[in-house]
């Protein structure tokens, strides 16, 4: 009974996974090599910091990272003093009014959320031709295909094929569902100047910013992988001991 059942179970998992469902017409997403892939995967700190630079200098003109706080940036290798310095370059409105009852602006502190470019969604739409630039702190988890998809979008701008009816104000993107995207191509070669001398090509910047955004979406991936390894090791030993005990206890019963 066992074999067909296991096969059926494997099929069940494969066939029923929503990941099996695919949009038509879109070419398959090419898989990139990510430092965070696999059970020992970790984030490449240098790529994360370069990615943060790309986010700050390019993406943040339109996109917020709502779930990130300045204090989180210590995770990607900045010291507490560096984080304080980064935070202080932003102006935020304090949560509480001052003694005169007036709301006031002050330099951001590490305990503040990273402020977005617009005060609300309506302001964001008004500034972007009616389109709402999505929050990027969850984008990698919120899209089918994850990091490969976001990389695909950033590098997937092309001239539309002949006969394609591109609406005005829209751009053709190979990997975007329906291929009409309101976001203009965000990256061009040397859009940023990397402090570490890495050459800022479009795929390089896309790779860096996707590493940063994957961390933003899943900041606990590294402790998760580490804990998981210990847990699996413990369970394998435990299963072995239980199996040996089972064999011994049942030795006289068969």
């Amino acid at each position: 009974m066992l074999k067909p059942f296991l096969a059926a179970l494997a099929l069940l998992v494969l066939a029923l996974s929503p990941h099996a469902a695919c949009a038509q017409e879109t070419p398959p997403l090419p898989h990139q090599q990510w430092s965070f892939d696999g059970i020992f995967g970790t984030y490449d700190r240098a790529a994360e910091q370069r990615g943060f630079q790309v986010y700050k200098e390019v993406c943040s003109t339109c996109h917020p990272v709502k779930h990130l706080y300045f204090r989180d940036l210590t995770d990607i290798g900045y010291t507490e003093d560096e984080v304080k310095a980064i935070a202080s370059t932003y102006q935020v409105t304090d949560e509480q009014p001052n003694d005169e009852g007036q709301m006031f602006q002050r330099p951001a502190r590490p305990s503040d959320p990273i402020p977005g470019p617009f005060p609300n969604d309506q302001a964001a739409r008004a500034a972007n031709n009616g389109a709402l630039p999505p929050d990027l702190s969850m984008i990698v988890k919120a899209r089918e295909g994850g990091p490969d998809y976001v990389f695909g979008i950033l590098t997937g701008y092309k001239d539309p094929p002949p006969g394609f009816n591109l609406l005005s104000g829209m751009y053709y993107n190979e990997y975007f569902p329906g291929h009409q995207i309101a976001m203009p191509p965000p990256l061009s070669d040397n859009a940023v100047t990397y402090a570490d001398g890495t050459s800022a090509t479009v795929p390089q910047m896309a790779h860096d910013v996707v590493t940063f955004l994957t961390w933003a979406a899943e900041p606990n991936l590294e402790p998760r992988h580490r804990t998981g390894f210990k847990v699996m090791l413990f369970l394998i030993i435990m299963a072995g001991i239980f199996y040996a005990a089972k064999r011994k206890i049942w030795a006289t019963a068969h």
């Binding site: 996974s17 990941h19 059970i39 988890k141 998760r224 992988h225 804990t227 998981g228 390894f229 847990v231 699996m232 369970l235 394998i236 435990m238 299963a239 239980f242 199996y243 005990a245 089972k246 206890i249 049942w250």
Partner: peptide
């Protein structure tokens, strides 16, 4: 003991999802 051995094997599968493919399903 038979249930405990089964439990350990099950927990291995469960942990794989929790730690290495938490959003797969």
């Amino acid at each position: 003991i038979k249930d405990l051995f089964g439990l350990a094997v099950f927990l291995l599968i469960y942990s794989f999802f929790v730690f290495y493919a938490p959003n797969f399903l």
